[in-house]
């Protein structure tokens, strides 16, 4: 059971809580397969998408999740909100709570912003991405996708490839995978591997080809991370071309891995940079499954966090 008000970080979840969320999502995936993709479960509940950092995918995913549970959902995004007029995040959130919101889904460019709200508000907070810190629902849907295909998480070998330093998805993913007993290797240039990662208990590899082709240690899952094109401007990589050459997942590279390897990506994809179109659209790719599963997992999160009496 999820005996908590908020979902702020994977680091706060116990493995059995993660299992509960994934198991619950199975039922919701079945609901999504129906003609009438709606259940009355959260009727009368109010969810606010408070997206201080813009997003189409995640916002729409949460919106569909809420609506399929018959909850009411309101989208508040920066450009149209009073935050641009200088209102503080805390004041904005308190106003929303005063309108009797039951749950706020927050995406914010600064790490720790959801924690600030969770401390101050009674209603639940779901972290939909805070700075470079975490994106818990993404990690959960990634786990769901892997488990669906591989039947297990424990003992799997997973490569996380790309700009780990700036990636909240990478952080949430590796914490979730480690909690469920998977082995994680971070792959990327040294400038994009953070310092101070000793407590994470992960491997690091600078050479993508080697990491893919290691005999008896071939990865079961490859998660490609999006490269933000501004990183080249800041000097983390000399050029997109060089990055792509060294860390892009092409068909040739993919063939070094085992034939049943899963290729994943949180989206949106930079076709031709971190992943080539034929791989993204190919048989090993479960990228679109991730999107489908995302709605089911978010339905599970809304159900588990919003139901029941808050004591």
């Amino acid at each position: 059971m999820l005996k908590r008000k908020d979902l702020l970080a994977i680091t706060e979840l116990a493995p059995d809580e993660i299992t509960t969320i994934l198991d619950t999502a199975v039922s919701f995936k079945e609901v999504m397969a129906r003609d009438i993709k709606k259940v009355p479960t959260l009727r009368g509940k109010t969810v606010i998408n408070l997206f201080v950092e813009p997003s189409t995918r995640t916002r729409t995913s949460f919106e569909l999740a809420a609506k399929r549970l018959s909850a009411d959902l309101v989208n508040v995004s920066t450009s149209t909100s009073s935050l641009t007029k200088g209102e503080s995040l805390l004041d904005m959130a308190k106003n929303l709570e005063a309108m009797r919101a039951d749950l706020i889904v927050l995406r914010h460019p600064v790490a720790g912003a959801p924690h600030l709200l969770a401390r101050a508000l009674q209603c639940g907070i779901i972290n939909a991405g805070d700075g470079a810190h975490e994106h818990p629902s993404q990690a959960l849907l990634d786990l769901f996708t892997i488990r669906e295909r591989k039947k297990t998480l424990s003992g799997l070998r997973v490569l996380l490839v790309g700009d780990i330093l700036h990636s909240r998805v990478a952080r949430s993913d590796l914490h979730a995978l480690r909690k469920m007993g998977a082995e994680v290797t971070l792959v990327g240039p040294a400038t994009m591997i953070p310092r101070g990662i000793e407590p994470w208990d992960v491997q690091v590899a600078y050479n993508f080809d080697e990491a893919l082709g290691k005999e008896n240690q071939k990865p079961d899952v490859i998660i490609m991370l999006r490269l933000q094109l501004e990183r080249q401007e800041k000097g983390f990589i000399p050029s997109l071309r060089e990055y792509s050459r060294l860390y892009g997942l092409t068909m040739a590279r993919l063939r070094r891995a085992s034939p049943d390897v899963l290729v994943m990506h949180p989206g949106p994809i930079n076709r031709g940079i971190e992943i080539s179109p034929d791989v993204a659209d190919g048989l090993s790719s479960v990228i679109l499954d991730q999107v489908t599963n995302g709605v089911a997992v978010r339905m599970a999160l809304l159900y588990l966090l919003m139901g029941g009496k808050t004591e």
Binding site: A111, G112, G131, A132, R195, G196
Partner: peptide, 13 residues
């Protein structure tokens, strides 16, 4: 401070 804690908290160090 840049280090283990900043990395975990996702804050620039």
């Amino acid at each position: 401070n840049e280090g283990v804690v900043s990395t975990e908290m996702g804050l620039p160090g």
